[in-house]
Amino acid sequence: MRLRLRLFEFEDLPWFPAVIRAGMMDYLRFMISALGTYRPIVPLLAEGLARTGQTRVLELGAGAGGGTETVLAALRAHGQPAATILLTDLYPQPTAWADIAQRTEGAITFEPTSVNALAVPTYLTGFRTLFSAFHHFPPEAATAMLRNAVQANTGIGVFEGAGKHWLELLLAWTVLPVAQLLLTPFFRPFRLSRLVFTYLAPLIPLCTIWDGTVSVLRMYPIEELMALARTADPESRFAWQAGKKRHWWGPEVTYLIGWPMSNEQ
């Protein structure tokens, strides 16, 4: 699917209720972690760390931290035993992140203040990543994010947990909503508000269906990802690659990754 529509997502709206956003993020975290969505790109990320001599992953737009523990474990199994992850977001979720930090004994930590992925503070170092969020940024902002990494001379990888297919839209309308209704009582940490806005006033599942549909439609195809990278890096200081990696159970992950050629180890 090459179509890319610039529709809105509820979670992007400043006025969107935080309690609904948190409920949606809890669902995404659970599903991404349970399905191991980003395992296929771990070798790419491990290569980026090795080539830049870095051990810390600086995760931008971390949301509720879904899949982060899986990525960390897989990184350490792919030749990066000292790997750590620092979670950041424009809308921080320290409660959810503190739970992850505790479970990983500090291997995953977090920045409690708001972090703009387009202008990352210089004191936040590491190989930058963005999972399931690059489609939120229009071309100008997406280019600015990549350019900011180039200017900081640090590697960056953006990963989308889909291959941009019509079948993914069908799943977003059928199987995934049912899974959300069945699994919500098992999400941790427990929140009464999550139950209220899932079953009594089902704003969380309805907004999740809309945002999941729009996410696929807003995703950048591979050709556009490379075009954004070339615009952000006109002097070709970085080695860039974009493509898709297929998960063992079928779905794909779309990616763009780059690192400074001058820093390759």
Rank of each mutant, 00 (worst) to 15 (best):
I209Y: 12
A201C: 08
F197C: 09
L228E: 05
I222Q: 13
V196G: 12
A229M: 07
Y220M: 13
P205M: 00
L225K: 07
R230N: 04
D211W: 07
D233F: 03
I209C: 07
W210Q: 12
L217M: 12
S236Q: 11
P221N: 12
R218I: 09
F238H: 02
G212A: 12
A232I: 00
D233V: 00
L217W: 06
A201T: 12
I222D: 13
T208H: 00
P202M: 04
F197L: 15
L228H: 14
L195S: 15
D233P: 00
P234G: 02
E223F: 03
V214E: 10
S193Q: 15
Y199K: 14
I209T: 02
W210A: 10
L195F: 09
S193F: 13
D233R: 00
P205L: 02
S193P: 03
E224A: 15
R237F: 08
Q241L: 06
L228I: 06
L217K: 01
F197G: 02
A227P: 01
A227L: 05
L203H: 10
L225Y: 02
F197Y: 13
G212K: 05
I209N: 09
L217P: 04
T208M: 00
L200F: 14
F197M: 08
W210G: 13
A232Y: 05
T231C: 03
P234K: 01
W210K: 07
Y199D: 15
R230L: 05
R218V: 07
L200M: 14
S215M: 01
S215C: 03
M219F: 05
M226R: 13
L203R: 08
I204Y: 04
F238A: 02
G212R: 03
P234V: 05
S193T: 15
L206M: 12
A201N: 12
E223Y: 09
E224N: 14
A239K: 09
F238M: 08
Y199W: 15
L228D: 07
L195E: 13
M219S: 04
W240G: 00
R237A: 09
F197I: 09
T231E: 14
W210S: 03
M219N: 03
C207Y: 11
W240C: 05
S193D: 15
V196K: 11
A239F: 10
D233C: 01
L206G: 07
E224W: 14
P221A: 06
V216G: 06
M219G: 03
I204Q: 09
R237S: 15
R194F: 14
D211S: 08
R194H: 15
